[in-house]
Amino acid sequence: MDPFVVLVLCLSCLLLLSIWRQSSGRGKLPPGPTPLPVIGNILQIDIKDVSKSLTNLSKIYGPVFTLYFGLERMVVLHGYEVVKEALIDLGEEFSGRGHFPLAERANRGFGIVFSNGKRWKEIRRFSLMTLRNFGMGKRSIEDRVQEEARCLVEELRKTKASPCDPTFILGCAPCNVICSIIFQKRFDYKDQQFLNLMEKLNENIRIVSTPWIQICNNFPTIIDYFPGTHNKLLKNLAFMESDILEKVKEHQESMDINNPRDFIDCFLIKMEKEKQNQQSEFTIENLVITAADLLGAGTETTSTTLRYALLLLLKHPEVTAKVQEEIERVIGRNRSPCMQDRGHMPYTDAVVHEVQRYIDLIPTSLPHAVTCDVKFRNYLIPKGTTILTSLTSVLHDNKEFPNPEMFDPRHFLDEGGNFKKSNYFMPFSAGKRICVGEGLARMELFLFLTFILQNFNLKSLIDPKDLDTTPVVNGFASVPPFYQLCFIPV
């Protein structure tokens, strides 16, 4: 058959498939802009700032609406009420993970971030239990974070109060905490193996944040037939998995079943207990991918939040002064901060919360999916439909947070200066898919920041009023603009 005829037939089939998918069930789905064949609503979305586009569309179609990214149908949730109703009140029905062709290629359905069903539930339950087990290797997770915080302070001392970009050092600290939990080992910041790991993690975040990856996920045929950065992403992930597998083999040879040292040991012990169960989800494949998931999810998000926190503290020296006064009063100079201190430091706690609220790190979270046909607000959402959640619409709700575009710790303080919780605080998402490392991340943010401010004054290279804190939105995360500062020993 003539190649031209084959091409026309293929394009015609794709067009018909697109029209059929977009028209099927439209009477039951939430409203939304009319999609174009094949490309859907992509032309109506700013790929570099999806969150802003969703906010604009919500003003037209309401808090629940339908979009098509290519052939992929998505239902968008915008605003606290619908997000709570879906992710919390109907948590089980909305607990699936959205379709990610690239991740599915890399992870093969294993791990904790992109798995679904029984596998996801069992691996998540085990990971939560293990991360909360403060007795691994007779050292609590808090001990590990405190140790890394001391190392971080010593690295900052080496800058000798000269101007520096904190990106690298602030990236090393949370990565080392995860390494300590998974591998029972922290690395020197100049260790070549550690630097290679950091390089792969950072490069992957840069790649994932590009519009090209959005295109690959919406048109998965590209993955096999086109060159691009997605190939580098898959190569980096394969490198990390190979490295983790080597460490798993080392653990198998040296493990003491009665004295687990780290996450890998705990997983291997669980595998041993379930070795007679042919349906067990505790396999080497799941261990390797879960460890890679924890490394990827637990490094860049925390380091970016820390980097943004220091920029905001530079911009608002009056806030920094209040935090340091609270540190001096509650902790002093002669001991290290600990998590028990947080309950006695409402202002510092409010500042950490406000940093996370203000920066809105992951504006749309990772997409969910419905696990069955769901009736939601008089609409029928078919099983498997991807759910896109606007966390921006919750964290920047102007009824809950007056002047949401302003950095103001009073958003989390009552009139008496006591810490005030808010149900709208969802930087880790909400419901059954809430970030498994939430507790660890909150511990790291509090301890790293208090250790830094206990030991250093922060000095800006320019007038604080002239510092730009506008986030650089890159399609996946909101990151701070480049800046330098000086760490002046107190």
Rank of each mutant, 00 (worst) to 15 (best):
V82Y: 08
I264Y: 01
F219S: 05
L380P: 03
F407V: 00
T210H: 09
L485Y: 05
L458A: 01
G96I: 04
R119Q: 09
T130D: 04
G417D: 09
F476D: 05
Y424R: 08
R97S: 02
V153E: 03
F407Q: 00
D293R: 04
V355C: 12
R108Q: 09
G117V: 03
F482M: 15
Q252S: 10
P33R: 01
V352D: 00
L391T: 02
L413I: 06
F446N: 00
I182N: 02
H99L: 11
N423M: 13
E281A: 11
F282R: 01
S460G: 14
S209T: 12
V145Y: 00
T55N: 12
E253C: 12
T283R: 09
L440T: 08
L395E: 03
Q214K: 15
D466Y: 09
D256C: 07
R139K: 14
L485T: 10
H368N: 02
L16A: 14
D49V: 02
A86M: 02
Q276T: 13
K275V: 09
P33E: 00
K190S: 15
C435Y: 01
V374P: 00
F187E: 04
S180A: 11
I362A: 07
N176W: 00
N41M: 00
L9T: 14
V177H: 01
T348E: 00
C266H: 15
S51V: 07
L306D: 00
Y225D: 04
G437Q: 03
M240R: 04
R119V: 08
R377G: 08
E72A: 03
T290A: 12
L413H: 04
P63V: 04
F168I: 12
R139Q: 13
F239H: 13
E300L: 10
F412R: 00
H99M: 12
N231W: 11
A103E: 05
R150I: 11
K235C: 08
F419C: 07
N423Y: 10
I284F: 10
H368P: 01
V76T: 04
N133V: 07
F446H: 04
E318C: 12
E142I: 06
V76K: 01
N398I: 12
K270Y: 09
N418D: 11
T167N: 15
Q324P: 00
S51F: 03
